[in-house]
Design a binder for these strands. Structure first.
Lengths: 208, 208
DNA sequence: ACTGCTAACCTATCAGTGATAGGATGACGC
DNA sequence: GCGTCATCCTATCACTGATAGGTTAGCAGT
C-alpha cells in the first residue's frame, strides 16, 4: 500500500490510463475514509504522482467525484439493461430488477453515495447541469423497462413516469437509509430487504 | 444581513441563548450554501462573534451539525406525536402521518439532510454512537403509532418493526431524491407526491 | 543522431479551512 | 472596591483545494 513515489519508479502514463488509475484509487479511498475525509494529496500519493498533477485530469475535486458518479451510473445502467434483456420470465423480471438494484447499491456503497447522496450542487441557477446526465440515462433505461412490463400487463396501471419515479424512490429509500445509518438497529437486514421487496412487488406489480 | 460585529454592539449572551443563536444562524447558512460550503467563520460572522468563540459551545463543526440533527429529529418526533394524538379518524391517520412526514422533510430541507443524508460516521467501530439517539426516538414514536394502527386493524399484517422500517424507507426515498436531485426533470412534483402517497397507502394500509 | 515540441510531471506557494493557545474584558457576588 | 469566572478576543497552527511556473521524458521530423 506504500505509494509508488517512495520508490521513485512511477512510469509516465498516457492521459487516459492515468485518469482511470486516479479514479480507481480515489474510489477505494472514498470508500474507506469518505469523500470529505479523502484529500487530493492522499489520492495523489496513492496513485504515485504529485497532488497538482491530478488537476491535469480533473479541474476540481468535485469534477473527480462527478466522474466517479458518472461511472457508477453507467455501471447501474448496464446492470438494468442486462436484466431487461435477460432470459427470465416477464412475471419475475420486476423482482429481478428490484433485487439487482438494491444489491448494486449496497455492494457499490461508495459509488452509490456519490451518485445519489452527495450534498447537491446547491446552485439553483437555471443553467443545465450536465453532471446529472448519466443518472438520467440510467433512469431512462429503468423507465423503459417498466414501460415494457406495463405493456405486457405485469405492472399496475398509471403514468409510467410516475410509476418509475415512485418505484425508484421506494428502492432508493431502503438503500439510502441502510448506507447512511449502518449503526441503526436494523435487526436482520436480509429479512428486512425481503420484506421491503415483497411490499414493493405487491404495490407495483399487476398480479392479474 | 451585516454582521453585528461591524457595528461593535454584540451583547454578551448567556451560554444557552448564544448556543441557540449559533444554531439558528448555522441552520440558515447550511440551507443556503450547504454544510461543506459554510465555514465556521461564516457562521461566527453571522452571529457576530469571533470564529474561535464557537468552540465554547460546540467541540467541533461536526458537533454543531449533530446538534442541528438532534434538533430536527426532536421536531420530527413532535410532529409525529401530534398527529398520533390528533383528533382524526384512525382510517386517515396513516395518510396524515405520511403527508406530514414528507412535508416536514421538504420544508426543513437543510435539517432533514443533516439528519439523514450526511456522509456517515464511517467509523464502524463497535462503540455506541450517541448521535443517532434522537433519530431512534423519533423512529420509536413512528413505530408505536403504527403499532396502534395495526391493533386497530388499519395496517396490514406483518412484523411491526419491518413495517415501520419499510414504510419509513418508502417515504424517505422520495424525500431524499427530491432533495438530492432538485434539478432532475421530476415533472409536476405535487402530482408525483400524491401518486407516491397513494401507492404507499395501498401497500401498507389495511382496507378491510 | 540531433533538434524541437509537447505532454507529463514536478516544486513552491496561495488563500481559506477547522481547530488550539493564551490573553483581555465585562458582569456579578461579596 | 475586588476577585472570579464566563465570555470573547487576537494570533497562530496544520492542512485543504487550487494555481503558477519551471523541468523532463519521449517521440516526430530532418
Amino acid at each position: 500500500m506504500v505509494a509508488h513515489r517512495a520508490t521513485g519508479v512511477v512510469p509516465r502514463l498516457k492521459s487516459a490510463a492515468r485518469r482511470e488509475d486516479i479514479l480507481n484509487h480515489a474510489s477505494r479511498l472514498f470508500l474507506s475514509y469518505g469523500i470529505a475525509g479523502t484529500s487530493t494529496r492522499m489520492i495523489a500519493n496513492a496513485v504515485g504522482i504529485s497532488q497538482p498533477s491530478l488537476y491535469a485530469h480533473f479541474a476540481t475535486k468535485e469534477a473527480l467525484t462527478n466522474a466517479l458518479s458518472a461511472r457508477a451510473f453507467a455501471s447501474l445502467e448496464e446492470l438494468i439493461a442486462k436484466i431487461r434483456s435477460a432470459d427470465i420470465p416477464a412475471a419475475t423480471r420486476l423482482e429481478a430488477m428490484i433485487r439487482g438494484y438494491i444489491r448494486f447499491a449496497l455492494d457499490q456503497g461508495a459509488a452509490y453515495r456519490i451518485a445519489f447522496m452527495l450534498e447537491g450542487p446547491m446552485h439553483e441557477d437555471e443553467a443545465f447541469n450536465p453532471d446529472i446526465l448519466p443518472g438520467m440515462q440510467a433512469f431512462a433505461g429503468f423507465r423503459d423497462g417498466l414501460a415494457l412490463l406495463q405493456q405486457e400487463g405485469h405492472l399496475r396501471e398509471g403514468l409510467t413516469d410516475h410509476l418509475a419515479q415512485s418505484l425508484w424512490a421506494s428502492m432508493h429509500g431502503l438503500c439510502a437509509l441502510l448506507l447512511a445509518r449502518p449503526d441503526f438497529p436494523w435487526g436482520d437486514i436480509e429479512a428486512m430487504i425481503d420484506f421491503h421487496v415483497e411490499i414493493i412487488l405487491a404495490a407495483y406489480q399487476n398480479k392479474a
